[in-house]
């Protein structure tokens, strides 16, 4: 079961009468994890929740400021813009990436020639994609005199500076996200292999077209995997940082067009050292990501099909 199916299952109660027997051993095996949970995860979470209601610059002790940070977020035009940029990136970039991943996975039939070669080529970019080096490459490719415009010139088109034009800069980053479709593709491939061949055989005997088979067999059978990819990629896309930082030299420009929420948070927290405001922003991000995930789980009841 995927991590997500596990979470869905946990909510089902299977009553237990027998007392647990391995308490002592479990405590020992879980020592590092428990320390980590409290010291590295839950403790800092609680701390940042407190800091969200303070004014804190690292030098003086945090001073309680009530709802000031929240009011400031409500008025902060740059923050609203960064949310707009991030939502655009997530809502266009993720479905586009998953659609490409699924389409390519379907093209890569079981046992076809060159399968592992194709898979390697398509998978590689997703392993490299989060590197600074790839962002550097992207910056050049989509620059005014970059590779894309050199190629366009060959067919007589005068390209623009894709990264330096605020209308297209975010688009180039969305394209970069699509370029890394390899890891969801690998998950789709594994899922497609689990659909029993006999379903397709039976359907073709009944005269169902390939398209019809895709809609009535493939899609419902792999819907849990689409759901899994969707949830994970959305959570990941909300946290993207490196590429926007590198192509804009950390500014989120031009004209704040690549100012991801995480980039703005970094600027507030680690450039202005406005730790209170950054904490409030971080909690807003958690709430947004949590809300997206919750909606996803809720809606999944209507379209995700579980075999068992």
């Amino acid at each position: 079961m995927s991590a997500i199916a596990e979470l869905q299952n946990l909510s089902k109660n299977n009553g237990r009468k027998v007392p647990p027997k391995d308490n002592k051993a479990a405590h020992i095996f879980l020592i590092p994890w428990t320390i980590g949970l409290f010291l590295i995860t839950l403790g800092p979470m609680a701390m940042s929740l407190y800091l969200a209601f303070t004014d804190y610059n690292l030098l003086q002790a945090p001073s309680f400021s009530g709802f000031e940070n929240i009011e400031r977020m409500l008025d902060d035009q740059r923050l609203h813009n960064s949310l707009r940029v991030t939502f655009t990136y997530v809502l266009i970039g993720v479905p586009l990436q998953l659609a490409v991943a699924l389409a390519v996975a379907i093209l890569l039939d079981r046992g076809m020639r060159g399968l592992s070669f194709y898979r390697s080529i398509f998978y590689l970019p997703s392993m490299l994609g989060s590197s600074v080096a790839i962002a550097v490459l992207w910056k050049q490719i989509f620059g005014t005199t970059g590779l894309v415009n050199q190629l366009l010139e060959l067919v007589g088109i005068q390209g623009i500076g894709w990264i330096s034009d605020p209308n297209t800069s975010l688009g180039s980053l969305i394209l970069l996200n699509v370029w890394t479709f390899g890891s969801p593709m690998v998950i789709f491939l594994a899922g497609l292999r689990q659909v029993p061949m006999m379903y397709y055989e039976a359907a073709s005997i009944d005269g169902a077209s390939k398209w019809r088979q895709f809609l009535s067999i493939t899609l419902p059978m792999i819907s849990p995997i689409i759901f899994f990819n969707l949830v994970l990629q959305i959570i990941g896309a909300f946290q993207n940082f490196t590429q926007a930082f590198i192509v804009s030299n950390g500014s989120g420009g031009p004209a704040d067009s690549t100012m991801f929420f995480t980039l703005y948070l970094y600027q507030q927290g680690f450039k202005q050292f406005d730790m209170g405001y950054a904490s409030a922003m971080a909690w807003l991000l958690v709430l947004i990501v949590g809300a997206f995930t919750a909606v996803n789980f809720f809606v999944s009841k209507y379209w995700v099909f579980y075999d068992d």
Partner: peptide
């Protein structure tokens, strides 16, 4: 409950812990 917490940390944005961690 511990298992559920563990699964949820997979999905937690790092930003919500990075500021206090940095301070610490």
């Amino acid at each position: 409950i511990m298992f559920a917490l563990m699964l949820m940390t997979i999905m937690l944005p790092i930003h919500v812990i990075i500021v206090p961690q940095y301070i610490m």
